[in-house]
């Protein structure tokens, strides 16, 4: 008679990866529901052709056929991954085929800082009211944020949360954050905006109008986060539930003027975003 079969589960198949800013996204085909999965174990190694499946290379355990390798910073980094299926009985599959993926390089690395608030490090702890002081936002920033680069301190001058009109705790209204910075001369080449978030509202992160010196550049759409960044400020903590996201885009050179420039983020849609850092970067000179 048969009692209990402890045959190993099937390995995950179809492992795919996408390099993103500061991270790599992995997806695979889940095993069928007939196998009760405890978790998928994700193994990773940097700058290698393959990864050994051992405790030292275990990057994460997840129940989803999906993982985000976060916190890779602005430098392009190359990683190799394999996935092992662990079933409800604790039985492990053989490893999946490996896949190698490279993350994208950020303008915070390739460019030269022109005006930066905070550090691009996966943490918002250096910003005002962080990590959980949102209840004091309206009294601290009744007119939004107006930050003068070189004079103001991020710890007091730039709120960690940027509320939107969906936020009752911030008056259910629109909120403008302005970054003022001087330029000796107008840039010859386009510059880049880097806007890193440690988290955002999960279902209604909304969008914001981006203006430079009063000219509307674009509407920035934000990715849904985990709705946890209003209470915690460090996405690099192991097991952090925060879901960082990144916006980097070019800003045409002709928007800028010698003297003071104003970059404005006008949150007129949705709920809050939680900042990691924001900045403007000049591009490196083109090589002939």
């Amino acid at each position: 008679m048969s009692t209990i079969d402890t045959a190993p589960p099937r390995p995950a198949t179809g492992l795919q990866g996408t390099g993103e800013l500061a991270g790599i996204v992995l997806d695979w085909t889940p095993v069928p529901w007939e196998t009760v999965v405890d978790h998928y174990a994700l193994y990773a190694a940097e700058d290698a052709d393959d990864v050994a499946v051992e405790d030292a290379t275990l990057l994460a355990k997840t129940v989803y056929p999906h993982a985000q390798h976060r916190g890779l910073g602005g430098t392009a980094r190359r990683w190799v991954y394999r996935v092992v299926t662990v079933d409800a009985a604790g039985t492990r599959s053989r490893p999946s085929k490996p896949i190698t993926v490279t993350s994208q390089e950020s303008v915070t690395v390739s460019g030269t800082p022109v005006a930066v608030v905070g550090e691009f490090d996966g943490k918002g702890l250096e910003l005002a009211l962080s990590p959980d002081g949102y209840a004091r936002y309206t009294q601290t920033f009744p007119d939004g944020v107006d930050f003068r680069h070189g004079a103001d301190d991020p710890a007091t001058g730039w709120s960690y949360l940027h509320p939107g009109p969906a936020d009752g705790w911030a008056g259910r209204r629109e909120h403008r954050f302005r970054l003022r910075f001087p330029l000796d001369e107008a840039p010859a080449d386009d510059v880049d905006l880097a806007l890193w978030l440690i988290d955002s509202h999960a279902s209604i992160p909304g969008s914001a109008v981006l203006k430079v010196n009063g000219t509307t550049v674009d509407r920035l759409e934000f990715a849904g986060g985990a709705t946890k960044g209003s209470l915690q400020g460090d996405s690099t903590v192991p097991g952090s539930p925060l879901r960082p996201s990144y916006v980097e885009r070019a800003l045409p050179a002709d928007l800028f003027v010698p003297g003071e420039n104003v970059l404005e983020l006008h949150k007129d849609d949705g709920s809050w975003i939680a900042y990691d850092a924001v900045g403007v970067f000049a591009r490196p000179p083109a090589h002939e």
Partner: peptide, 16 residues
């Protein structure tokens, strides 16, 4: 999910 897990992925959490 109220916390950003997609409807495609959430059944895996429910299952366990």
């Amino acid at each position: 999910s109220r916390y950003g897990i997609s409807t495609e992925h959430f059944p895996h959490l429910r299952a366990v």
